[in-house]
Computed example of a mutant assay.
Amino acid sequence: MAEVLFYHLQRQPVEAVLPALLLRSLERGWRVVVEAGDEQRMAALDDHLWTFSDDSFLPHGSAREPDIASQPVALVCEPGNPNAANVRFLVYGARTPDDLAGWERVVLMFDGADETALATAREDWRKVKALGADATYWQQNDQGRWEKKA
């Protein structure tokens, strides 16, 4: 069963944190799916990943493209695994899947300043624990570093 990581964002938005985590995943040889809560957010994330750094390139594609299966990072708005990924990132309100089989890691990122996002993350935490998955909770400290809280 997948290892599930909850990332409580406090000091930086998803756009600032996600690219580094995606690059790290690719360095480990993993393929990745990033599920956004809606089409508009997925499109904005697609644009951002092309321009987030002047000295780095993050190969990716969106579910709108015919060659999505060949992409190391696939951006989607629905369940599924179009590129045979090992890791699934959930952002902008995307929910933890009911079935964690087939994933090595599932990462749920949520905005700590958004009460709705916090409540949803708490629901997903309870669901993941009820499924018997290994779940950890990470929160940014004042320096922007991640601290394991649970």
Rank of each mutant, 00 (worst) to 15 (best):
K148I: 09
M42Y: 02
W103H: 06
W138K: 03
V73Q: 02
V14H: 01
T96W: 10
A133V: 08
G80H: 03
V87W: 00
E123N: 14
L58N: 04
D124F: 01
D54Y: 07
R24W: 06
L100D: 01
L118K: 12
D67R: 12
D124N: 12
E115M: 10
V91K: 00
E104N: 12
L23N: 04
R95G: 06
R41E: 10
R122L: 08
D142H: 11
S62P: 02
K129R: 15
V34Y: 00
D98P: 03
E104A: 12
V107T: 04
P72T: 11
Y137S: 05
D124A: 11
N83H: 06
A85L: 07
S53R: 11
A63M: 09
W146T: 07
A119V: 07
A69C: 10
N81A: 06
E27P: 03
L90K: 01
S62L: 02
A101R: 15
L23K: 07
V32W: 00
Q140G: 03
Q139T: 11
V106G: 00
E104I: 07
L90T: 00
Q139H: 09
R28D: 12
V106N: 01
G61Y: 00
A84Q: 15
G61L: 04
G29Q: 05
R41A: 13
A121S: 05
A119D: 11
A133Q: 05
A94V: 09
H60Q: 09
N83P: 08
E115Y: 05
G37I: 06
F52T: 08
F89S: 02
R28L: 12
A69N: 10
W103T: 01
V128F: 00
R122T: 05
P19Y: 02
H8R: 09
A150G: 15
A16S: 14
L75Y: 01
K129Y: 09
C77M: 08
A43C: 03
T51K: 12
R145C: 07
E78N: 13
L23P: 01
K129L: 12
G102S: 10
R88T: 07
L58V: 12
P66A: 12
Y7F: 15
L100S: 02
P59W: 05
L90Q: 01
R11D: 08
T120N: 13
W125M: 09
R105K: 15
G93L: 03
C77N: 10
A69H: 12
R64E: 10
A63Q: 13
Y7S: 04
Q71R: 14
V91H: 00
T120K: 11
K127E: 08
V32T: 04
H8W: 05
V107A: 04
L45N: 03
P13E: 09
L49V: 05
T136G: 12
S56H: 11
D134Q: 13
D111R: 03
S62H: 00
A85E: 02
F57S: 09
L5N: 05
R11P: 02
E35F: 02
S70D: 15
R24S: 11
W146P: 05
K148S: 07
A101I: 10
Y137D: 03
Q10W: 10
